Amino acid sequence: METVVAAKPIIKVAALCGSLRKASYNRGLVRSAIELSKSINGLEIEYIDIEPLPMLNTDLEGKGTFPPTVEAFRQKIKEADSILFASPEYNFSVSAPLKNAIDWASRPPNVWADKAAAIVSASGGSGGSRSQYHLRQIGVFLDLHFINKPEFFLNAHEHPAKFDGNGNLVDESFKKKLKEILISLQRFTLRLEGKL
């Protein structure tokens, strides 16, 4: 009699970048995460562009409806099992575009609720740690569940050689750290969903 091995559930990750620059280091982290995910069985990452979102204005809401770009964005978040944030640090906090995206998806019904999440940052100074801590605080209200470890902070100003001229991550040691984040996010998501 043949033994049937159950296929590993596919975890769908929505990846958001808080920087709108095409060659930003944080976008580079997302591109690298997508590439790395191809070597992780059962993990799929989709980049969700937040640039088209209008600034939050509840006058744009109808009775239970949102502008089409917002509706499409909210649906992508709703369909995802977990979230990967690439969060630069602006003035000791998260960027305005990322906060705007977070706020739109939090409008009732809150589509962030009960999802696993992870944060990676490439920034100056502390490598984005302050933005990550603020994002974790926001996540408490949104019922987002962040992995605690490992953490990923990269001081891109002190170590620009870790990226190429297009903002792509080229440093193998940091690629390894990024893959560890993805594996941790996958396992935590499976635990939250009762599949592990």
Rank of each mutant, 00 (worst) to 15 (best):
H145R: 15
V5L: 09
V140F: 04
L185P: 07
P52C: 12
D114K: 05
L36G: 03
K176T: 12
H159C: 07
L56P: 03
H134T: 11
G124S: 10
I45W: 03
L36W: 00
E71C: 08
L154Q: 01
S32Q: 13
I34K: 05
D81W: 09
K175P: 05
G125I: 11
I83A: 01
S106Q: 07
A23T: 13
F66Q: 09
L185S: 04
G28D: 04
I119D: 04
R191L: 08
S106H: 14
G62K: 01
T3E: 09
F146R: 14
E151H: 06
S126K: 09
K12Q: 06
L154M: 15
F92N: 15
S129D: 09
Q186E: 09
R187I: 12
L190A: 13
F146K: 08
A6W: 10
L142D: 12
K38L: 03
N148C: 14
L192K: 13
L29D: 06
I10K: 13
D49M: 05
G18T: 05
K149S: 12
S106W: 08
I83K: 02
K162W: 05
D143N: 15
N110E: 12
S32T: 14
K175T: 11
E71I: 11
L135D: 00
F152E: 10
L98E: 03
L60G: 14
V70H: 03
P9F: 08
A6S: 15
C17R: 00
V170F: 05
T3N: 07
N26S: 11
K176I: 11
K76P: 14
L98C: 10
I40D: 01
L16A: 04
F174N: 10
Y47I: 01
F152W: 03
L20Q: 06
T58L: 15
V4I: 03
A23L: 07
S121H: 03
I48K: 02
G167I: 05
N166G: 12
V111Y: 15
I138V: 05
G124I: 04
I119Y: 00
A14L: 12
A33Q: 01
T3C: 10
G124F: 00
Y90I: 01
F146Y: 14
D164F: 01
A156M: 06
R187C: 08
H145T: 14
S129I: 15
L20A: 09
L98G: 09
P160T: 08
A14E: 04
F163T: 12
N26A: 08
K177V: 15
Q132E: 12
K76E: 12
S93T: 13
A86L: 01
K8P: 03
E180H: 06
S32D: 12
I45L: 08
G18Q: 10
S121E: 08
S95H: 04
G18P: 06
W112M: 07
L56N: 01
C17S: 03
P9K: 04
Q186F: 14
K149D: 09
E46I: 07
V140I: 15
A101W: 02
